[in-house]
């Protein structure tokens, strides 16, 4: 497996405020990393550092290149889609395709046109007059038509309706399986992206609070749906979260207590969202 992203002890500080502190991870071809965290957890700063748009402390290599000093070379293999539309509004679709074909050596304009032909996006349309869903579709088409190895998505489907979300993820999965690629998705919509992820990096106040592959993360936690009468026993197991129901309460516990809890109620596998909410609320 080729290591496409390597970040070692990455920190970012804005004057006195620490945005990201000592974050390390590796991402290989075929992996999809979920970058999860509350607003202000440091996701955008970490993405900015990976894109080379922010200076940082530590070491980052994407496709073996330094994002700050070798940005132009790196951008042949790295792409980014965010919730905020970054496409130039004053351009037409045809103009942006022509520009990209002129400056991006691996951009296949015919492939991009072919991808767009299956949508309602006309070549002569100004980007400003496209809907948000169409803009994301256009941006993804441009990326798919390049030989991108690493794609970073920052809340890509925020504000999109269900149809556009479905189309977006369908195209994304097709693109991902089409080569040796890695994907980083930062999103609040944990349920929406969970099925895509192979790995998770969860941040809280700039620090890593959970990191690992999906299997190991799921193996770390479980939920026990226990009667209220068992509350005192369960409280001794330091539950991460609880959700009271009618007659029973669902407790999120660490896996070390699994054998003890099995006799107390039904054991359920937690979703990533359950774990995310519990960890983000912990100590809050």
């Amino acid at each position: 497996m080729t290591t496409l992203v390597r970040a070692a002890n990455v920190s970012k500080q804005y004057q006195s405020e620490v945005a990201v502190k000592d974050i390390s991870f590796e991402l290989q071809a075929g992996q999809v990393l979920g970058l999860l965290g509350h607003n202000g957890a440091g996701k955008s700063s970490l993405i900015g550092a990976l894109l080379g748009s922010l200076s940082y402390q530590g070491e980052i290599q994407v496709c073996g290149l330094n994002p700050v000093n070798q940005r132009a070379e790196l951008m042949q293999h790295l792409a980014y889609i965010s919730d905020v539309n970054v496409l130039p509004q004053w351009m037409t679709v045809a103009q942006i395709l022509r520009y990209t074909s002129g400056v991006h050596p691996s951009f296949d304009i015919n492939k991009a046109k072919q991808l767009l032909s299956s949508t309602q996006i006309a070549q002569r349309t100004k980007i400003s007059s496209l809907s948000k869903g169409m803009k994301v579709q256009l941006h993804l088409s441009i990326i798919i038509a390049t030989d991108t190895k690493v794609l970073i998505l920052d809340e890509p489907t925020l504000g999109l309706d269900l149809i556009y979300r479905d189309t977006f993820y369908r195209h994304l999965i097709e693109w991902f399986h089409d080569g040796e690629r890695a994907l980083i998705i930062a999103s609040h919509e944990v349920n929406e992206i969970e099925h895509l992820l192979t790995d998770v990096l969860m941040l809280k106040q700039g620090e890593t609070v959970l990191q690992g592959d999906m299997d190991s993360i799921h193996a770390q936690y479980f939920i026990v749906d226990a009667q209220h009468q068992h509350e005192a026993i369960i409280q001794q197991m330091s539950p991460l979260a609880s959700k009271a129901g009618l007659g029973s309460t669902k407790w999120l516990l660490e896996s070390q207590y699994r054998s003890q809890a099995e006799s107390l109620g039904e054991i359920i596998n937690p979703t990533l969202q359950d774990i995310f909410i519990a960890i983000q609320k912990e100590g809050a």
Binding site: A72, E73, M75, V86, L87
Partner: peptide
């Protein structure tokens, strides 16, 4: 101001160029 800076920076074009 218009927010397209990230798009232009996502192109393989050096700052010097």
């Amino acid at each position: 101001q218009e927010g397209s800076l990230m798009f232009w920076r996502s192109m393989p074009v050096s700052d010097a160029m």
